[in-house]
Design a protein around this nucleic acid. Structure first.
Lengths: 192, 192
DNA sequence: ACTGATTATGGTCAAATGACCATGTTTTTA
DNA sequence: TAAAAACATGGTCATTTGACCATAATCAGT
């Protein structure tokens, strides 16, 4: 039993101890070292992923070879490529570890069974989807309306704990601005 | 009974005629004239919306008074502000008609009842959510990685039918580029 | 602790973009 | 159908941004 996982579920759901055990028992553990990929473009996303410890990023590589980060997944977050997982088709994105990371994985069949057996888990699942939709919309709005500096400030506010764990270039990649622009902003903020 | 609605459901689901009637009977009709708002920032999103005919846009207004378009909803599409609808909290966005538009509205209670009574509707609902998630991700990627011209070309490919129905400034607003940039692109594409 | 790799910053310059404004055209609506 | 409103385009100019490159600092893995 993962104490971290148990703690997360106790704080965020009203699942019983039995249910938690049941869910836990269906999971596989995996440890990733820095830069190791959990999912590679072209592969099929076979698992639901819970990050116990560490930090993942979801990103795609465009035709010029540039990386664009879609999402960070720090400890106590869930992640997967919805499209690939739902339809079991090849993924267009990559998921890799930024730090040494521990994850729990559930196979689709197992997880679906859990969803039907444990209504409270189904509820949690819905909540996570809603939150993601809301969060994507917010990000889209910021991306459309904010200046690079506003984007950076917004990022710091939204993910204060990630700031020190991420290389700047990844923040730039997430915000859709060049690293040059980002260092300029930081320079200006220091000298004023 | 809305023939358009019936047609849509027959083409996209395996709902029975009875179910379709049942769903239809719980809906309210509403007609919007050009520029009329269906939802205003500050209001609570009380309905699920199906666009029978016409064209809606979902947009927010930033602190400088600029509009940013999050989504277009043409005929045969569903729309709502998820966050506001789910939690029944004030919305941060607006929904307005670009053309004279006919919509069908379901109250939350009624729709939830339908969802539990009609499994096939629940399935449709899930599909729509998945598609939205996938589509948002694609849009985010394009926004992050494409040049203004690529964004415009992508828009034309993705929504060829909307192109002639939308004022250019709304396309610019959706793409997150200035209208100046957009007319420049169009100018270049003509003269080459 | 050491070595190689990664990272952050800054300079320079060209190109892209947006703000502002004017004009002619199209669309709406009364 | 006529007047008013909304719209698309283009000119000009200042500013922002990114590409490319070099350098110094920091970090990771042995």
């Amino acid at each position: 039993m993962h104490p971290e996982f148990e703690k997360y579920l106790k704080e965020n759901t009203s699942l019983t101890q039995d249910d938690i055990h049941h869910i836990n028992n269906k999971a596989f553990d995996k440890t990733l070292h820095r830069n190791e990929l959990l999912l590679q473009a072209g592969d099929i996303c076979k698992h639901k992923v819970f990050v116990v410890k560490g930090l993942l990023r979801m990103y795609s590589i465009d035709s010029n070879g540039n990386e664009h980060i879609l999402q960070f997944a720090p400890e106590h977050s869930w992640t997967l490529d919805v499209e690939s997982y739902d339809k079991q088709i090849p993924s267009e994105i990559n998921m890799g570890a930024i730090e040494p990371t521990e994850v729990m994985l559930w196979q689709k069949d197992d997880f679906n069974k859990l969803l039907s057996e444990v209504p409270e888990l189904s509820k949690l699942s819905q909540q996570i989807i809603s939150r993601n939709i809301y969060y994507s919309r917010q990000r889209m709005l910021t991306t459309l309306s904010a200046t690079p500096e506003e984007k950076y400030d917004d990022f710091i506010e939204r993910f204060p704990k990630l700031l020190t764990r991420l290389p700047l270039r990844m923040i730039a990649s997430y915000l859709g601005i060049s690293i040059k622009t980002l260092t300029r902003i930081r320079h200006n903020q220091l000298h004023r």
